[in-house]
Write a protein that binds this DNA or RNA. Structure first.
Lengths: 207, 207
DNA sequence: CCTAGTGGTGTATATAATACACTACTAGAT
DNA sequence: ATCTAGTAGTGTATTATATACACCACTAGG
């Protein structure tokens, strides 16, 4: 059988790309160069190619913007309201990407702190809200938070990152207790140098 | 702009439909009448119509099989591996549906206990595994489990349903304590009649 | 009147989450 | 040399939550 009598929708992948910088959780938005929503802020996105896995589309969109091949990528949800794109039926599979703090993004677009987002085109505000909610929810019970970190990090840096993602301060002693009791990370035995403070133990993920 | 130079993929919705019956969590599978995978067990599914919201597609597929308009529906994930359908590129948005125990399903297909599933066509085993995992995971921290229940129920019936979904026995006193402390449900003040046991208090959701 | 089957109840223990404050070390400025 | 700013590192008491566990009562049906 073949029986596909319906006009096929276009299928895109949109990316909610997060990074923590200057103490804030930020998301990458680009200013659309063309209609619809020309000049408005939107999530980076692109059409799914013919023989391309969805995750591959996501990675292509991400690395088309910069050399970000190392990012954590995870499917978020699919948005398919019939009128979400004025060009016609476009179904978008949203992914979120997480860049570590050392990853220097060199593409178009700007990073917006998630507590100071601009208006966006399409239904991208909804996608962003869903992404932030999921990200915060998964922080405590998955290892997703480590995707914001470089391979080696101190507990102080880790805590600052967690606080930026959650948008709330955390108690230092409780944070260290709970992180260490997870068994996810282990000490490298080395200590950080530099900084106007005592050297801090450097940890890395143990898995 | 229009610029959609790529052949468009077909887009379907596949449904992982759950119900608890005879003490087991079961999922609805239908035997495909046609190629590909003719005669094999698959999830009910169908193409997304031109101006149809994805959730509407899911509901249409569900109620095409029976009058199941009351089911809980929730998006699960999107499966888009390039070779997942031998007919060509087909991207499937999987939903899961939950029927309450009193819902009499009268369509084609059979209910399979999730601990005794047959081989399935396409990548539907993967979709099913994802659905079961998500369902069990969400049971404790969402109200999804109540979708298996009719409007009014006893704590005994609720516990049996939970046990069927999780596939593990639960302690009666602890179960009652934790359910009641959630504040989700309240007593109707009435008691069940019938059965070779004392009347049980009837509860309903308080939301 | 006996049996099978479920309704309903409480306590003790272990584990996890929270609240909370001080000293020590380093870099850099004066 | 000394001072200052900034972070590293540490422990305990309290509260809340999760777990383990056993008995009597009531109803329907044989």
């Amino acid at each position: 059988m073949v029986s596909y009598d319906f006009p096929r929708p276009a299928v895109t992948v949109d990316l909610a790309t997060f990074q923590v910088s200057r103490g804030k959780l930020r998301i990458l938005l680009i200013q659309r160069p063309e209609s619809p929503f020309a000049g408005e802020w939107t999530l980076p996105g692109g059409f799914v190619h013919e023989r391309e896995a969805l995750q591959t589309t996501a990675r292509r969109i991400l690395s088309a913007k910069a050399s970000l091949s190392e990012a954590h990528l995870e499917q978020l949800a699919t948005f398919g309201a019939p009128e979400r794109d004025p060009r016609g039926r476009v179904i978008s599979i949203a992914y979120f990407a997480i860049l570590d703090v050392d990853c220097a993004y060199e593409g178009p677009g700007d990073w917006f702190a998630v507590d100071a987002l601009p208006e966006t085109g399409f239904d991208h505000s909804e996608i962003i809200a869903t992404a932030i909610e999921r990200l915060r929810g998964k922080l405590s019970y998955t290892d997703i938070g480590f995707a914001f970190m470089p391979a080696e990090f101190t507990l102080g840096a880790l805590q600052k990152t967690w606080e930026a993602v959650l948008g709330t301060p955390l108690d230092k002693r409780n944070f260290r207790k709970s992180i260490l009791s997870r068994g996810d990370i282990e000490s490298t035995g080395r200590k950080s140098t530099g900084g106007a403070h005592p050297p801090a133990m450097i940890y890395h993920r143990s898995s």
